[in-house]
Amino acid sequence: MELRQLHYFVKVAKKQHVTQASEELHVAQSAVSRQIRQLEQELGVTLFVQKGRNLQITPVGKLFLSRIEEILNELDRAVVEVKEFLDPTRGEIRIGFPHSLGIALLPTVIAKFRQHYPDVKFKLRQGTFFSLIRDVIEGEIDLSFISPFPESHNYVSGEILLTEELFGILPDTHPLAGEATIRLDQLKDEPFVMFSDAYSLRTIVLQACKKAGFVPQIGFEGEETDTIRGLVAAGLGVSLMPEMALMETSKLQPARVRVIEPTVTRTIGLIRRKSEKLSPVVQAFREFLLDYFGHDRNQ
């Protein structure tokens, strides 16, 4: 069974006339008739019966037609998707991101990219450090922002895009709230509001506290930057938060102070499956991000 036969069959079924079908197909009438006969022989059924000058489709022909139309429509959609995949001005980009980057960074870079590629679609997936790496490895997403950047990994590779400072956040009534800078060990007796175990920011904060010579008392845990910020603003503890996560304002807003001794930072990177060729549209977005963050691709 050939694809050409199926197209001829559908056209004849719609026109109920071989001559009219052949004219629209721009092929000889005899060629259309021959392909229909071959299709009937292969299926072992009669698809059409003569009715005057026209052809009438048989009941089994109607059944076959309904299924073939579905198949041909799916095939047409598949061809469109392949063309979009290969066209860097169209297609779809599947990208992952941690929650803290979804507030400002991700919307900003997507909006700027779509100024140049307005027809590109994005499928977004939020996740934790390990879930994002897993989704990239398993092919669920094409690229992912990630923090901290995994310097060495067997299955993913990428680039550091930027390094971001973490600030201390305190209730606005805290004695240190008005200071320009504080040492991290000045918070050693305070209850900390921490991210849960699944989030890499928790590890960064714990390591910073260890470097400052203490183990933080954990008073509350949460999974969203809004939750952490709100609990601190309500006077339930202190925390460290990336600068980008503090850009959004709300009614409950904590005080922000710069932390020294040690300065606390995190790396933000872009990862993809190692040694895999990206589609043109995904590669275009990757190159846009490298340029946007001033990354030297020759390093």
Rank of each mutant, 00 (worst) to 15 (best):
E70P: 02
Q126F: 05
E164C: 07
P98A: 04
F129V: 05
I133F: 00
V45I: 15
N54L: 12
Q38M: 13
F129Q: 05
Q50L: 13
G96L: 08
E92P: 00
S66G: 06
L39S: 10
G52V: 04
E70V: 15
T58E: 06
I137Q: 08
Q115T: 10
R77M: 12
A78S: 15
D87G: 01
I137R: 07
F64P: 05
V136W: 01
E42Y: 09
P150A: 14
K121P: 00
P88Q: 03
V45C: 06
H153N: 15
P88R: 03
L161P: 06
I160H: 02
S66D: 15
I95K: 03
I57C: 03
L105I: 15
V45M: 14
E84A: 13
I110P: 09
H99P: 00
K62S: 13
V80A: 10
Q50M: 08
V80H: 07
V82F: 10
V79K: 14
L106W: 01
L143F: 05
R77F: 08
L132M: 06
V80T: 12
G158S: 09
T58L: 02
G96K: 06
N154D: 14
P59W: 02
Q126H: 04
V79G: 07
T128E: 08
K123T: 12
H153D: 12
L106Q: 02
E81Y: 10
R90G: 04
S100K: 08
V49T: 11
V60K: 11
G96I: 00
N73L: 11
I133A: 04
E70F: 05
R67C: 01
S66C: 00
L43M: 15
F85Y: 14
Q50N: 07
L39C: 00
Q56W: 04
I160K: 10
F122C: 09
I71M: 13
V120H: 01
R90C: 03
E92R: 09
Q41R: 11
R94H: 06
P148H: 06
K112N: 08
S144V: 00
T89D: 13
R77A: 06
L132G: 00
L161G: 12
T58R: 07
L124Y: 02
R77W: 14
Y117Q: 13
K123N: 13
E69Q: 14
R114N: 14
S152N: 12
L75M: 15
I137A: 07
T58S: 04
L161K: 04
L86M: 12
S66Y: 08
T89E: 12
I95E: 04
A78G: 15
L101C: 00
